[in-house]
């Protein structure tokens, strides 16, 4: 009862934050679920192409891009109507992607083809295809737009792409099965999670040298099942929230000391996540339990579970229009 009151109080306090929506792709339902960050309920479900995974918004939030992996396309949806506006040529089996700060170029990992495809969203043309390692997945781009990253799961590398020449300029080994990459601290660091290796590696952007490595240990869970996948950073990049897959926990990592400060129990096979606008709440996709866990960032507690479709995968935030 006490907990409920606390949760209600949290809900009341967090709902003061600006209104918005979390969009979640449901890999095995071919839909996206739209969650209100105010009511924490699903307010809309839209159909997508087959096996939707990566999802992100254009800078002005007027378009949402969805990797429809089994349709071999990136779909462009009007988020206000759920209508598919058009499809972008993405190469085969697009899984994850990232939007260049120019708001125009999408860097897409083509998982089955060992290729990163660069698509111009305005002309809808492929402007480059870059050979990378086996099973490319994680994608990141530096805030200044100069570097894009592709991680390859079986080759176990982060491939550093010069976005001017669209060519690789460095390849750095990481632990087994790298899944996700992010630039942080104004692009001075680049973080990569390794699912099977069970680590997150931190690289210095300038030298591409390894700066640190983070390991995880969840009580009562065999280390083999502690598998870092998606991660996002709290306001000011002070902490990383790292999804640990089948261990069903999210780790809170101090981004300065690289120490893990806390583990938060969430749904089963936690995969990706995104924050609400002021980053006071975190929404994680839990593939196996088919739900989204809402974490209160300040108290580092899970406050609600929201049922979505089958195998929720990606998550992306947009402010409510108007």
């Amino acid at each position: 009862m006490k907990l409920l009151t606390a949760a209600a109080a949290l809900l009341a306090s967090t709902s003061l934050a600006s209104a918005g929506e979390i969009w979640v792709t449901n890999e095995k339902d071919d839909t996206v679920s739209v969650i209100s960050t105010e009511t924490l309920e699903v307010i809309q479900t839209y159909d997508t192409g087959e096996r939707p995974r990566g999802i992100l918004f254009s800078k002005d939030f007027s378009r949402v891009y969805i990797c429809a992996s089994d349709s071999n396309a990136v779909q462009v949806m009007d988020p206000n109507t759920g209508k598919i506006l058009n499809e972008l040529p993405s190469g085969d089996d697009p899984e994850q992607f990232v939007l260049h700060p120019n708001d125009r170029h999408l860097y897409i990992a083509n998982e089955d083809d060992a290729i990163t495809t660069v698509v111009d969203t305005e002309t809808r043309k492929v402007i480059a295809q870059i050979d990378v390692g086996v099973e490319p997945e994680g994608m990141a781009v530096s805030p200044d737009g100069k570097i894009a990253i592709t991680t390859s799961e079986t080759t176990n590398m982060a491939h550093w792409i010069d976005t001017e020449t669209q060519k690789l300029f460095a390849n750095t080994l990481v632990d087994s099965r790298p899944r996700h990459a992010e630039f942080v601290k104004e692009g001075s660091e680049m973080w990569v999670s390794s699912e099977i290796g069970g680590t997150v590696t931190v690289f210095d952007r300038e030298t591409q040298a390894e700066k640190g490595k983070i390991s995880f240990e969840v009580q009562g869970v065999h280390p083999d099942r502690v598998q870092p996948v998606g991660f996002e950073f709290s306001a000011g990049d002070t902490h990383a929230f790292v999804a640990l897959g089948p261990s069903n926990h999210v780790a809170v990592v101090n981004a300065e000391t690289y120490e893990v400060e806390e583990y938060i129990l969430v749904g089963r096979r936690v995969w990706h996540m995104d924050f609400n606008e002021d980053r006071s709440m975190l929404f994680t996709t839990n593939g196996v339990s088919g739900d989204v866990t809402v974490i209160d960032v300040a108290s580092r507690k899970a406050i609600k579970t929201i049922k979505v479709g089958r195998f929720p995968w990606g998550a992306a935030y947009r402010p409510t229009p108007g």
Binding site: L173, F203, T207, A209
Partner: peptide
């Protein structure tokens, strides 16, 4: 130059 940079990176990170 690029090649040596790649190798330098590898020496620093992987081995």
């Amino acid at each position: 130059q690029i090649r040596s940079k790649i190798l330098a990176t590898l020496f620093a990170t992987a081995f």
